[in-house]
Design a binder for these strands. Structure first.
Lengths: 119, 119
DNA sequence: CAAACAGTTGCATAACTTATTAAGTAATGA
DNA sequence: TCATTACTTAATAAGTTATGCAACTGTTTG
């Protein structure tokens, strides 16, 4: 257990490697990671992300889908943008938002997986 | 692209599968996931988790390591416990805390990985 | 059982978040 | 260029959350 080569490692070894990574967590890294988690930590923003998981949408579409006001949705997107969780693209009058990368997708799915586990 | 079998799928397909999962996010799932992320979204609590990544620790040890008061650390652990992010084990006078499972470890590492990406 | 140690809980205050309304910017079209 | 649509930003008011202190619970030891 605890070998350092990434090739051919068992799930247990994989976890051990992750733990080694975690040990190196300095204050700054904690702050940055917390910043991302904090923005993900709101049901309304998670719903926006859940919509965006289905594909690009403009602000009005998101607002209509969730039954929220435009400024409210815009504020939420601003926070998500701040942590690079979503990306922005203007097309004429509309601004389309999307999940920034597949990293974000994985992050959210992992959160859900943990949420699904009821002891 | 977008085949449904989990076996032999490319990274792109894998991401597509994750996106399909995300589409199913209902309000309840969003709330549960957000609850977990909210608790992770604090630098002080992330530092506690970073310590626990190195192995089990009792409350006094954590408090000493971070230079925080005992009640403060206890409150943080209570929140983490509430979302089953850490587990508790009593041994005599001491109560030892640990990361609840490797799922949590992955979650935190993914958050850090995203935090590390500076555009 | 009493004293000491290890943690937890409750409460009050300070700091932060979020939603709402109104005003401002940017792009299109008449 | 003036009006309209689409969105952002600002200001404020309401609600949350974190922290520190004091009191309490549970466990061991004398």
């Amino acid at each position: 257990m605890g070998q350092s080569t990434p090739l051919g490692c068992t799930p247990a070894d994989h976890t051990a490697n992750l733990v080694n990574l975690l040990k190196k967590l300095d204050k700054g890294a904690c702050q940055r990671a917390a910043g991302i988690f904090r923005v993900l930590g709101d049901p309304a923003r998670m719903q926006v992300l859940s919509l965006l998981a289905g594909g690009e949408m403009c602000v009005s579409e998101i607002a209509a889908a969730l039954g929220d006001s435009l400024p409210t949705v815009s504020q939420r997107l601003k926070l998500l943008r701040g942590e690079r969780i979503v990306s922005q693209r203007r097309a004429g009058k509309h601004i389309y938002y999307a999940l920034a990368d597949e990293h974000v997708v994985r992050l959210i799915v992992n959160g859900l997986a943990h949420a699904g586990e009821r002891k």
